[in-house]
Design a protein around this nucleic acid. Structure first.
Lengths: 166, 166
DNA sequence: TATTGTTATACTCTATAACTATA
DNA sequence: TATAGTTATAGAGTATAACAATA
């Protein structure tokens, strides 16, 4: 036989991959619809608010947010801008840039918005995902995914891609 | 503290949800990059080719494809159009519409394209996901997700949304 | 000069609604 | 008239590259 390509992924692993992508895709689609209707939020905007809202300080560096939430700095600027502009003083206001590394801070209105959206959000998760994933299974799923997530995170983050030399 | 909102999702379940979304998101992002570079394919286009290529007949009804792959019929038409137009006779050519329910069929060139892209695709999956998910774990993951996927699929499919009355 | 963030811009994708064709 | 698919169109999101500012 001529150069047989390296043994393809085994079906079990391939199945896990497809299931993962499909389930997450459908879930995210449903969630985005709910967020849009309940608070006119994109998933990224929600994610932004959630990160800030559940953090100790309510603040985070822009670049760190970008790494966690979006794939490009400009994308973050765009989404943060929507939050600020769309609901003036309502969401992710940023203090006047004092240093090169500016931080985003959630406002009270941002927390309100988050709170407005959360119940419906939880309900979608419940209906679509958790109903078929009892606590023990949820735990198992989280345990399976934890090392994967850590591994992926350790891969050079998107926003740190070396910039083109001038 | 005042009116405590209804008991939020328990942290374990919430953690599973976030891990799922994040892992799938990062994975998909990486995969899309690879597909773009290796074959100038969007993920949807790849998914389309894969569905057709791995099906018995190499054909499928457009609506069924839409339900599986995309969220709207027009989206499918658009992506299928790209496959046809972008590489004439190369990808997802469709026989002249004979009936209202036209079917998409993969061409030899489409199979080639799929084969071209597959090895790199597998490698990304391997590196990013499976390296931290040995076979047994992959099996476990698939088993956990299977009922969820079935449940989600049974929910009224996107393309079947009742059309507005005229 | 190196790092961080923003703007300008161009492009891809997606969905809704209107339209065509078929049964 | 009901169903399947396409086209027109408009909007959202994203990324790259150029730019400004800070250290």
């Amino acid at each position: 036989m001529p150069t047989q390509p390296p043994p393809p992924l085994d079906p079990v692993q391939l199945g896990a991959y497809f299931a993962l992508i499909e389930v997450a895709g459908l879930l995210r689609h449903a969630v985005e619809q709910q967020l849009r209707e309940a608070g006119d939020l994109s998933y990224v905007q929600f994610h932004l608010l959630a990160r800030l809202g559940y953090s100790q300080t309510g603040s985070q560096r822009m670049t760190d947010l970008a790494d966690d939430v979006v794939y490009s700095r400009s994308g973050l600027t765009y989404q943060a801008g929507l939050l600020e502009r769309g609901r003036p003083d309502h969401a992710g206001a940023r203090p006047p840039t004092t240093s090169a590394a500016s931080t985003a801070t959630i406002t009270d209105a941002g927390r309100e918005l988050l709170a407005t959206v959360m119940p419906g959000h939880a309900e979608v998760i419940e209906q679509l995902l958790l109903q078929k994933l009892p606590r023990a299974d949820a735990q198992a799923l989280a345990d399976l995914l934890a090392p994967v997530r850590d591994h992926m995170r350790s891969t050079p983050p998107r926003s740190a891609k070396p910039r083109r030399r001038r």
